[in-house]
Design a protein around this nucleic acid. Sequence first.
DNA 1: GTAAATTTAATTGTGCACAATCTAATTTAC
DNA 2: GTAAATTAGATTGTGCACAATTAAATTTAC
Lengths: 149, 149
Amino acid sequence: MGVQMNDLLKLDNQLCFAIYACYREISKMYRPFLDELGITYPQYLALLVLWEQKKCSVKELGERLYLDSGTLTPMLKRMEAAQLIKRNRCMDDERKVIVHLTKQGELLKEKAKCIPEALLRNSGIHQEDFLHLLKQLKRLLRHVHDLNK
Amino acid sequence: MGVQMNDLLKLDNQLCFAIYACYREISKMYRPFLDELGITYPQYLALLVLWEQKKCSVKELGERLYLDSGTLTPMLKRMEAAQLIKRNRCMDDERKVIVHLTKQGELLKEKAKCIPEALLRNSGIHQEDFLHLLKQLKRLLRHVHDLNK
DNA sequence: GTAAATTTAATTGTGCACAATCTAATTTAC
DNA sequence: GTAAATTAGATTGTGCACAATTAAATTTAC
């Protein structure tokens, strides 16, 4: 009871489309919470990294988020303008730019703390389903990322 | 063995991030194939719809792809400039714009036919895993889309 | 020690996304 | 039948994504 060869071009059978549309629909659920903090979803992701490890290079951030400097540089500049982070050249290796939180960026973590729980509750998704899907998608992500290397 | 309350803000436990990064990595796998056809991934999705049903309104296309006119109008204009589609006002209801394939856009289907199979093969993902994940993500998409209504 | 290769960011240009607003056509309510 | 509400697209402005190129610093190979 699989998908026939002829159906593989049907929109309904596109895994990547389902993933892509899911991202956009889920990010819409984040919007009211992130609007409250004055940030976008990609900025939220960058902050998640910095809330975990206080500072990191643009390169390292790019590796964590699977984004390149062409995306990160302007985004980080906007975040610096919003006084959430500071960007400084590394002293040891001046090719590197180190990003770290400002006090304000650090304080935002308290306001953000409730977001994942609120979203999970709003969505009504069971924890076991959430964990199962998370596990599968992380596996897929690692796999596809390896293929692209 | 679930996720602790304190870990919910960790990047590693973000379902939406895994989905978002998956989309971007998978779309990278499409790129060489789509470059061949001279189209982008969102354009490919629009073509999938038109290859299925020959013509449809912008509104209908937006509903199928979960995209609004602010995204579709400029994209469809680029596709019209590339002579893949034509856009015409509907005679019955002039608010509607009907999109349909040109001969060229129709012919592109033949070149695209092999893409899903090639991608599935390149990825090395088992059909059963593919189908399982597709089913789950379509379910999640419908669920979240309903919540956003 | 210096030229070549590598590494890290920044820049540029194109193409989505999407909120907000606007315009025009059509429906509806009366 | 006409004013008000609704609907369908288009427009505008901001913010990602990412390929391709550039620039500068650091490593390496000789």
